[in-house]
Design a protein around this nucleic acid. Structure first.
Lengths: 196, 196
DNA sequence: AAAACGTGCTAACGGTTGTTAGTTTCCTAT
DNA sequence: ATAGGAAACTAACAACCGTTAGCACGTTTT
């Protein structure tokens, strides 16, 4: 049997992925090297390959882990008996929270997916397209029910998701605004913009 | 004298920068190679160095060209005698238009500035900080005057700028929505969210 | 005790990177 | 025609890339 993942599954692979996510965000996937990563893990570059299969496997793991998280949450929200505004509120808040405490992962899924190798790239993009379509459907539903103002659902989705992903430049400079204020103000802005 | 920039200054350097901007956006600065770029320009890699000094000089040119454009515009808007809402409307529309027809340049200034070498990186970030601060001041002014709803100005700026930069994922998939509809809907969303 | 395995190491591979040196080509101005 | 200069070329550099092979060490399982 193994040596390290005896009890808790805080395996070395997980350490590698975590360190890699920091590195990929700082330097970009293309510019981050395996030797760089190895140094942060405290090991020689070649040793990494006892735990992972390739550099891009790390990227895949990160991207799809994030994608699945959002997908699962969307399904929960979709099948809940709330108003469309509350649904969007829930979704926006999850996105913001993910951005706040899974920052590195979300950032990479947002910006470095381009470097996924091919069957995965198409898969990822199709998942993303589907996710956005379904968000758009909620908004469309909200407009039909008269709960939201008449706006292009696609543009609204784009605006919301992009606005949230911009939190990354807040992350770097934790100035005046606290995390709670950030969340409440951003939700306020984005939801008020939807309300009829 | 030269050979190519006789009349119009559509120099080869400009061609290089333009091709590079396409390439940097597609692959990222780190993953785009000079040999790749050379092929798109129709020349050997070494020949590029008759026109430019280094790979990162191209990045610098792109980033600061965009930054200057926005800075200049901001100064014009700041000193104009309009309502704060109209000012923000103007600024948002310029950002959207820039995103629509200078897409590659703006994208790179938005996402690839990390790879700027060091005196330039700090310079760029400080310019950006200042730009955002001044946008925040306009919103703060709008709140004081009772033209805008009470929202954290910093969060509002973040939301607006990020929302616009998300147009890049619309660029890739010119589906149903036209450019005009995109602009009007996004302005509607973002300005309505500010109005009192 | 012995076999099997997980995990680290060093060395090396074939390829690519940005960039420089030195030379040739070709247009322009005298 | 000829000199000059801009811009192209080939060749090469040192460094770095992701990854593999082969081996050593220690723990775990039989």
């Amino acid at each position: 049997m193994a040596k390290i993942q005896s009890k808790k599954n805080g395996t070395k692979k997980e350490v590698i992925i975590e360190k890699a996510s920091k590195l990929f965000r700082e330097k970009g996937f293309g510019a981050a090297s395996m030797r760089d990563l190895a140094e942060h893990v405290g090991v020689e570059a070649a040793s990494l390959y006892n735990h992972i299969q390739s550099k891009s496997e790390i990227l895949q793991t990160i991207c799809f882990r994030v994608a699945n998280k959002f997908m699962t949450n969307l399904e929960t929200v979709e099948s809940s008996p709330q108003s469309t505004l509350k649904k969007m509120d829930d979704i926006i808040r999850l996105h913001i929270r993910m951005m706040l405490d899974q920052y590195e992962f979300v950032y990479i899924a947002d910006h470095e997916w381009r470097h996924l190798p091919e069957p995965y790239l198409s898969n990822f993009l199709s998942q993303r397209r589907s996710y956005r379509k379904r968000l758009g459907n909620i908004i469309e539903d909200g407009i039909t029910r008269g709960e939201m103002k008449d706006i292009d659902p696609y543009v609204a989705v784009l605006t919301i998701l992009s606005a949230i992903s911009g939190i990354d430049s807040w992350q770097r400079s934790r100035k005046s605004t606290s995390a709670e204020d950030l969340e409440s103000n951003m939700v306020k802005y984005l939801i008020e913009g939807l309300k009829k």
